[in-house]
Design a protein around this nucleic acid. Structure first.
Lengths: 342, 342
DNA sequence: AACAGTTAGGCGAACGTTCGCTCCCCGCGC
DNA sequence: GCGCGGGGAGCGAACGTTCGCCTAACTGTT
């Protein structure tokens, strides 16, 4: 139960003193710069390792004017999709020698109040935004330091920041195509929050596929499932109340697809015979529902990794261009879809 | 598409120059220390805000010898349980004015190679370990800087580091008690990795309850479900092969409980009539399985928050005592348990 | 009017680095 | 034998802070 404050770390000066050279020379050796004779280099390295020298990145940052740190502002860290993206981002940062400062947003707060100042004070080299709720934060674009590279995984009002997202429009298109190919003609949708770009893009792709098959579809047959299981369950019930002839459903998330599955079971409808379901996200458990879900795979991990790659590239080149990157999605066929039984 | 490198930040010196005082005086004002006249204080604050001054925490850290940053080493950021804990920890750190540097471990690596040095270089004030796999890392205790406060959510070899965990033994006890109270006498278990302390503690509590009911139980009737759904499914099948008389099951995680549910359905056994199931963790979807799962609530969020609280306290007091904290768990009764039908 | 006490503010140093410049000495070529 | 080039090493400055100590001026007291 030792109680010691401030066991001072060993610095280049300590190493220098012990090796009988100036601390600047020590610094040169440790960074492999300048010319130092082989014998002193070896001696210094030996002493450094003996003393357990660990460079102080804070001090280095001060003079180098970059911290090798990026700030990650996360919506809900415990959201499985966001956290997949964060894993990808963190891994890529690490691979390129960057550290990640993370902060998550309170559900209420716009994030502007705390997260950004904290990141600025720490002089992060760039910011990665992984927070869907920021889409609604209209003031965000204004408060961001315009000289600081920023990449977001979600749309930011004003379109001035670079984004990397999945191809949501394609996701909607693929879902509709899959169902239309199986001769479904009355297809409904359980959506995420209507204000979100992802929701709108998926809808757009979906409608586009429907209209290609000469419009016999029930466009507008959609309800908001708020990305939650119980909300989706009731949304599904409402849809069938509106139109009992529905033979297929596209849920904008697998969790909502599971809610739909429950609703259908409660109505006594079998899947896929009486109603097909296409989910979205491709979460682990989608393979274990009954029946296993046909779904659209959204590459969360890759999105995070790619976003970080873009951010680091922007930092390296000093570019602030608001690049927009779309990552491909694909449909994964399981057993929740089939042609209508009739 | 501006391309500018190094738009130098405004420093206290800039503010000072514009206000006609020395930069040290500016510093005093900004920190509310020393005595400064009301008028110059006001002027300085005005200038600071005009110029958009943001203090540089790196520089401050250098002289203060603390970074107000804690390093969080996470096993798998996308694990829902771990990420709940991380959310709690991050929130508590933020509340107390600390930032969080995060790094996640590669599945293979022991973490020692990258994560720790990176944290040390950044001179974090303390380290929070949220990585179950570290339990198996025998060398970890040795490589940790013994002067740096560390708190872990999982056991660390050597017992020299403080830990905050759920009361796993109680979890096992409660599960067994619940089943025994419902007159089950042949109860089996699907466990997590046997090497983990959580698994062992849960087993211990479980066995203890069994032996209190005078030992008519099938102790040793356990299989490793590796915390995965499919592995648990086959583990459950093996258990029933070993003893077809099983009437109740304790799964060490809800995901494994869902695997067990699938196995039982495939065997044509109904839940809870022919077999009761108690899960563990209390994940969201446990309330939506059919039937909804009776489970043990593990307070992941609170564990993370409490661990961070302890860590910050240790930093504040300079204590390095390896405190052990246990957080209470509770059983949540839903519909997957009942007395045996016979 | 001289003195002590207080208040406002300045100054130097330190934290741990990196970088550019200077300096010395040695060996080499003419 | 003399100048020159280059390798090896040191030195000063800077990055943006905080802190302790110092000083000048102003306040009020006897």
């Amino acid at each position: 139960m030792r109680v010691r404050r401030h066991a001072r770390h060993v610095s280049v000066k300590d190493v220098a003193a012990r090796s009988g050279v100036s601390f600047q020379t020590t610094s040169k050796v440790l960074n492999g710069k300048g010319s130092v004779s082989e014998v002193t280099r070896a001696r210094i390295l030996q002493v450094a390792s003996d003393l357990g020298y660990v460079p102080n990145l804070q001090a280095r940052s001060l003079v180098m004017q970059r911290t090798q740190t990026i700030g990650l502002i996360a919506g809900d860290l415990s959201d499985r999709n966001l956290s997949r993206a964060i894993v990808g981002a963190e891994r890529e940062a690490r691979r390129q020698g960057y550290g990640v400062m993370i902060t998550s947003l309170e559900p209420e707060g716009s994030g502007t109040e705390y997260a950004l100042p904290a990141m600025m004070e720490r002089r992060v080299d760039g910011i990665l935004l992984v927070a869907p709720q920021m889409e609604e934060d209209i003031g965000l674009a204004h408060v961001l330091d315009p000289t600081l590279p920023v990449v977001s995984l979600h749309q930011v009002a004003g379109d001035a920041v670079a984004t990397v997202t999945a191809d949501d429009q394609m996701a909607g298109y693929l879902a509709a195509k899959h169902l239309l190919d199986r001769r479904h003609r009355v297809v409904a949708t359980v959506t995420g929050p209507p204000a979100r770009r992802a929701t709108q893009d998926r809808m757009r792709g979906f409608e586009q596929a429907l209209s290609e098959k000469s419009a016999q579809s029930a466009a507008g047959l959609a309800e908001d499932g708020r990305l939650e299981l119980p909300a989706s369950e009731t949304a599904t019930l409402r849809l069938f109340k509106r139109n009992p002839g529905i033979t297929a459903l596209f849920a904008h998330s697998d969790v909502m697809a599971i809610g739909a599955l429950r609703a259908l079971r409660s109505m006594g409808k079998t899947v896929p015979d009486e109603c097909s379901i296409v989910g979205c996200d491709d979460i682990d458990s989608a393979a274990y529902t009954s029946p296993p879900l046909t779904t659209i795979h959204i590459p969360f991990y890759e999105t995070g990794a790619e976003a970080m790659r873009l951010l680091l590239e922007m930092i390296r080149t000093g570019s602030l261009a608001p690049t927009k990157v779309l990552l491909p999605v694909r449909l994964i066929e399981r057993s929740s879809t089939a042609p209508p039984a009739s």
